[in-house]
Computed example of a mutant assay.
Amino acid sequence: MYLRLYRPEDLESLTRLFFETIHTVNAGDYTPEQLWAWAPGAVDAARWDHTLREHHSLVALDGDLIIGFGDMDGSGYLDRLFVHRHFQSRGTATALCDALERHAAAAGVTHFTTHASITARPFFSHRGYRTLREQQVVRRAVLLTNFVMEKSIT
Score class of each variant (00 low, 15 high):
residue 65 L to I: 11
residue 132 L to D: 14
residue 95 A to T: 09
residue 115 H to L: 04
residue 61 L to Q: 12
residue 126 H to C: 03
residue 29 D to P: 01
residue 142 V to G: 07
residue 84 H to Q: 09
residue 100 L to T: 07
residue 49 D to L: 05
residue 85 R to Y: 08
residue 90 R to Y: 00
residue 23 H to D: 09
residue 47 R to K: 12
residue 124 F to M: 07
residue 80 R to V: 00
residue 131 T to Y: 04
residue 85 R to S: 14
residue 134 E to V: 01
residue 31 T to I: 09
residue 27 A to N: 07
residue 34 Q to K: 04
residue 30 Y to Q: 10
residue 123 F to G: 09
residue 42 A to M: 09
residue 122 P to Y: 10
residue 128 G to S: 10
residue 127 R to L: 15
residue 34 Q to D: 07
residue 103 H to R: 13
residue 64 D to T: 14
residue 100 L to A: 07
residue 41 G to D: 08
residue 74 G to N: 09
residue 98 D to M: 07
residue 93 A to T: 06
residue 128 G to I: 11
residue 134 E to C: 10
residue 58 L to F: 10
residue 71 D to S: 15
residue 81 L to P: 00
residue 138 V to R: 12
residue 139 R to M: 07
residue 121 R to F: 02
residue 105 A to R: 14
residue 123 F to M: 03
residue 140 R to P: 00
residue 135 Q to N: 05
residue 50 H to W: 11
residue 79 D to P: 00
residue 102 R to K: 13
residue 117 S to K: 04
residue 135 Q to Y: 04
residue 21 T to Q: 03
residue 21 T to M: 07
residue 27 A to R: 14
residue 74 G to I: 00
residue 142 V to P: 05
residue 92 T to K: 05
residue 52 L to Q: 06
residue 55 H to M: 01
residue 26 N to A: 15
residue 91 G to E: 08
residue 65 L to C: 12
residue 67 I to L: 05
residue 80 R to Q: 15
residue 127 R to V: 05
residue 127 R to Q: 12
residue 133 R to S: 11
residue 54 E to R: 14
residue 50 H to A: 15
residue 65 L to A: 14
residue 86 H to F: 09
residue 132 L to C: 10
residue 46 A to N: 09
residue 51 T to Q: 13
residue 83 V to P: 04
residue 66 I to T: 05
residue 61 L to M: 11
residue 97 C to S: 13
residue 95 A to G: 01
residue 24 T to N: 06
residue 52 L to T: 02
residue 82 F to N: 06
residue 134 E to D: 12
residue 111 H to M: 11
residue 22 I to H: 04
residue 53 R to I: 01
residue 65 L to N: 06
residue 138 V to E: 13
residue 100 L to F: 01
residue 54 E to V: 02
residue 97 C to A: 13
residue 59 V to F: 01
residue 30 Y to N: 08
residue 82 F to E: 07
residue 128 G to P: 03
residue 37 A to C: 09
residue 115 H to M: 05
residue 83 V to W: 03
residue 60 A to W: 01
residue 110 T to H: 13
residue 70 G to M: 08
residue 92 T to E: 08
residue 146 N to Q: 11
residue 145 T to K: 08
residue 118 I to F: 03
residue 146 N to L: 08
residue 73 D to I: 02
residue 89 S to V: 07
residue 92 T to Y: 00
residue 78 L to S: 04
residue 41 G to R: 06
residue 66 I to V: 14
residue 88 Q to I: 11
residue 39 A to V: 09
residue 64 D to W: 01
residue 28 G to A: 10
residue 46 A to G: 13
residue 117 S to F: 08
residue 64 D to N: 12
residue 43 V to M: 13
residue 59 V to L: 05
residue 51 T to P: 00
residue 76 G to H: 05
residue 107 A to I: 00
residue 25 V to R: 08
residue 56 H to F: 14
residue 133 R to P: 01
residue 69 F to Y: 15
residue 85 R to E: 07
residue 74 G to V: 05
residue 109 V to G: 09
residue 120 A to N: 02
residue 139 R to E: 12
residue 36 W to G: 00
residue 22 I to Q: 05
residue 57 S to H: 03
residue 27 A to M: 10
residue 80 R to N: 15
residue 59 V to H: 02
residue 74 G to W: 02
